[in-house]
Lab assay of single mutants.
Amino acid sequence: MLEGKVKWSNSEKGFGFIEVEGQDDVFVHFSAIQGEGFKTLEEGQAVSFEIVEGNRGPQAANVTKEA
């Protein structure tokens, strides 16, 4: 699992980007967020995730919010 911080997200469009130190930003779709209820990410929020190869390149999977 990698750790990063949410660079920005748009809940209306359903995606955002995660900033990882020393690496390119990672695309995240809201379907990759683990948990119940409305899935949102806040700018600056710490997250853990895996990287998978998506249709348009690397993207985050199994995203969990850190406490």
Rank of each mutant, 00 (worst) to 15 (best):
F17R: 00
A61S: 10
V52S: 06
M1W: 12
S9M: 15
P58I: 08
E21R: 10
V47H: 01
T40E: 08
E50I: 15
S48H: 11
S9H: 10
F27A: 02
E36N: 11
W8D: 02
I51N: 00
I18N: 00
N55H: 14
E42F: 12
A61Y: 10
K13H: 08
I33F: 08
A67E: 12
R56Q: 08
V47W: 00
K65I: 15
E66F: 14
G16H: 02
S11V: 14
E3P: 08
E19S: 13
N10Y: 06
N55T: 13
K7Y: 05
F38K: 12
F38R: 10
E43G: 08
G35H: 07
S31G: 07
L2Y: 14
V52N: 04
A60C: 04
D24Y: 09
V47R: 00
R56D: 06
K5I: 14
Q45I: 08
E43C: 15
S9P: 03
F15V: 03
H29S: 08
E3R: 15
A46W: 15
V20L: 10
I51T: 03
A60Q: 00
S9A: 15
N55Y: 15
M1K: 15
S31F: 05
G35Y: 06
G4L: 04
K7L: 03
G37T: 09
E43L: 15
L2G: 05
K13G: 08
K13T: 04
Q45P: 00
Q45N: 07
E50R: 11
N55S: 14
P58V: 08
F38A: 13
M1V: 13
G37D: 10
T64G: 05
Q23I: 11
E21D: 11
K7F: 05
F27H: 01
E19V: 10
G37A: 10
Q59V: 10
F30G: 04
S31K: 05
K5E: 05
E43A: 15
I33Y: 04
G4I: 04
E3Y: 15
S11A: 14
K65F: 14
K39N: 10
E53R: 10
A67H: 13
N10P: 03
V26G: 00
S11H: 14
K7R: 08
E66P: 13
D24K: 14
M1G: 07
D25F: 05
M1F: 12
K39P: 10
A46V: 14
F15D: 00
N10W: 08
G57R: 06
G14E: 07
D24Q: 12
E43D: 09
K39D: 09
A32D: 09
P58W: 09
G37M: 07
N55G: 10
G57H: 03
E53D: 10
A60L: 01
G37K: 09
G35I: 05
R56A: 07
F15M: 03
A61E: 07
G44P: 00
K7A: 04
N62K: 09
I33A: 04
S31W: 05
A32K: 05
V20M: 08
Q45M: 12
K5A: 06
F49M: 02
N55V: 14
Q23R: 14
E42M: 11
Q23M: 15
E12A: 12
V52I: 12
N62C: 11
K7S: 06
S9L: 15
H29T: 04
V20T: 06
F27N: 01
L41I: 07
G14T: 13
G16A: 13
N62F: 08
F17N: 00
G22A: 05
D25P: 07
F30M: 05
Q45K: 04
Q45A: 09
P58C: 07
A60H: 02
M1D: 05
S48M: 13
E12N: 10
E42C: 14
A46D: 08
T40L: 10
G44I: 01
K39Q: 14
T40S: 11
L41K: 00
T64A: 08
T40Q: 09
Q23V: 08
N10V: 05
E3W: 15
N62E: 04
F17M: 05
A32S: 09
V26T: 04
V6M: 05
E36I: 11
F15T: 04
F30V: 06
E42Y: 13
F49N: 01
I33E: 03
P58N: 07
K39I: 09
T64H: 14
T40W: 13
V26C: 05
N62G: 06
N55M: 14
G37R: 06
F15R: 00
E3G: 09
E66D: 11
T40H: 10
F49A: 02
E53S: 12
V28R: 00
A46F: 14
D25C: 08
A32N: 07
G57K: 03
E3D: 09
L41V: 07
E43N: 12
A60R: 00
G44W: 05
E21Q: 11
E19L: 10
G22R: 03
G57Y: 03
G35M: 09
F27D: 01
E36T: 12
I51Q: 02
F49D: 01
W8I: 03
Q23W: 12
F17V: 03
N62Q: 07
E50Y: 14
H29F: 06
I51P: 01
P58D: 04
E21A: 12
E12L: 13
I33M: 08
Q34N: 13
G54C: 09
G22S: 04
V52C: 10
K39E: 09
V20R: 07
E42W: 12
V20Q: 04
V28Q: 01
D25Q: 04
S9K: 13
K7I: 07
E12D: 09
G37F: 08
A46P: 10
V63F: 00
K65L: 15
K39F: 08
K39W: 10
L2I: 11
V47Y: 05
E50A: 08
G54Y: 06
F49S: 01
Q34E: 09
R56G: 07
I51E: 02
M1H: 10
G44K: 03
E3A: 14
V26M: 03
W8E: 04
H29L: 08
L2P: 01
E42P: 09
N55I: 15
G22F: 05
S9W: 15
G54Q: 04
G16S: 03
E53F: 14
A67T: 13
E21N: 10
G37S: 08
Q45L: 07
R56P: 05
V52W: 07
E50S: 11
L41E: 01
V20C: 07
Q45W: 10
G37H: 08
F30I: 07
N62H: 09
N10I: 06
D24E: 12
G54D: 06
E42V: 12
S48T: 13
H29Q: 04
G14N: 10
E53M: 15
G22P: 02
D24M: 10
I33D: 02
A32G: 04
F30P: 02
G54K: 05
F38C: 15
Q23K: 10
F49V: 01
G22E: 04
I51D: 01
E12Q: 12
Q59M: 11
E43I: 15
E66M: 15
V52K: 08
L2S: 07
L41S: 01
T40Y: 12
H29Y: 06
I18L: 07
Q34A: 11
Q34I: 15
K65N: 07
